[in-house]
Design a binder for these strands. Structure first.
Lengths: 234, 234
DNA sequence: TGCATTTTATTTGTCGACAAGAAAAATACA
DNA sequence: TGTATTTTTCTTGTCGACAAATAAAATGCA
């Protein structure tokens, strides 16, 4: 009974709480640990993270700013729904950003960008080999985000990141319900993209980015249309 | 002395404070009433708006999320600088979004969109006729935002709005230092764009959007390069 | 005077409490 | 039993106060 330490408090540093909550909630939303429609309760989160509602609230305001949660005034907050009816607008934007960022990377990358991109390429290949779904999704996002960074246009990078994030939720659904080893194809396409970027082949990078994106879109669309038919069949 | 009402408080409604502060600060930043680098003090704003720091802080978090203000941890908050060194990335993104949104409007607009767009077109023409700079900037943004809305892709619309907002600050500089009646040309180009959209001439709308955007970019670049030379001359 | 150290001031970050708004539950009434 | 009304509950919105972190000012010392 000598151990009378007041409490084994996590000892967080001032200012770190918001980021902690923001990062964690964001990942939980994008990995569908918190599926669309899940209630997000400030008091509950405050208890969970052992802090007051103020920093929780700030994290939620930021998530709302990115459209990841929705707030009904005076009433409740919940994880945003995926707008399946307008998926085509998402795909349109995604394809264009794949093209633009890959093209700009071919145009503007510096030598020091390539090792980073290659490293993430290998991470993705490893995740595919290990059949680790969550790792595949995460490393794929990181790979393309790194290409976008090498393109050096923060406006495009910003939109692309948002689209890739939203895509994490959709891909999560995809991999949950669909088993196939096609990702090897993506690994090969990634390698081609790197080659085009390194060769500063702008048109080639554009073409590969477009083809790669449309490949993904097609697969996902095929899945959803099949699911629709299944729903109707029930 | 019978009038002993406690205080003639503005009587704001619960939940409206954040929006009030957010909207006002946003406009003040974009109109350069608060120039880049201006300090943004929470306590001062709380006094000015007669509310506690909590809603002020929420408005600031949102503005920071859009990159309009920057926060140094534990120290200070200030209006974001305009990144003149990387203006070309801004122009690249702006031109592409002009193209994409105008193109999509030609493709996806509904009949009820056109009267709205025409109305804003006339507002812009009126502002040009009146030589009202702030009104020109504001109505121009509203006009192109309406076209983007008619294109019905929220991802593109979102990025475009951000770019147009950032453009408000740059155009404000432009009109402050540059006097010329070229805006009439923009009025004519706007009319052409409306015609292409109405005719569902997708390629034509794309071409017009691109030309229109490049026109603006060229003028602004010319101004800045002239200013640079002036700076050097001093 | 020049520099290191301590003190003060200023601004943000966090907290706990209370009030308002809206939905859900309970009650009253026919 | 069915509906209108009141009460309760639950969640968010706002407040005032305090603590921590940093920069600026003041002080001490050679």
């Amino acid at each position: 009974m000598a151990d009378t330490e007041p409490t084994p408090v996590p000892e967080r540093k001032r200012g770190s709480g918001v980021k902690l909550v923001y990062d964690l909630l964001r990942d939980e939303i994008l990995d569908l640990v918190l599926p669309p429609g899940s209630p997000v309760d400030e008091v509950q989160l405050a208890e969970r993270f052992k802090m007051s509602r103020t920093p929780i609230r700030e994290a939620l305001v930021r998530l709302a700013g990115e459209g990841l949660i929705e707030t009904l005034p005076n009433r409740s907050t919940m994880v945003s729904n995926i707008d399946f009816l307008n998926l085509h607008t998402f795909f349109d934007a995604l394809v264009l950003m794949y093209r633009v960022t890959t093209r700009l990377a071919a145009q503007n990358h510096r030598r020091e960008d390539l090792p980073i991109i290659r490293g993430l390429h290998e991470d993705y290949a490893a995740a595919v080999a290990a059949r680790d779904t969550l790792a595949m999704i995460a490393t794929n996002v990181a790979f393309h985000a790194a290409i976008a960074e090498a393109g050096r246009n923060p406006y495009f990078t910003g939109l692309f990141r948002r689209l890739l994030d939203e895509g994490r939720r959709i891909l999560r659904l995809y991999y949950q319900s669909y088993e196939e080893q096609f990702p090897q194809r993506f690994v090969d396409e990634h390698a081609e993209m790197i080659a085009a970027i390194e060769a500063r082949d702008i048109e080639g990078a554009d073409r590969l980015g477009k083809a790669h994106a449309e490949q993904i879109v097609l697969q996902v669309q095929r899945l959803f249309s099949r699911n629709e038919r299944l729903d109707i069949a029930l």
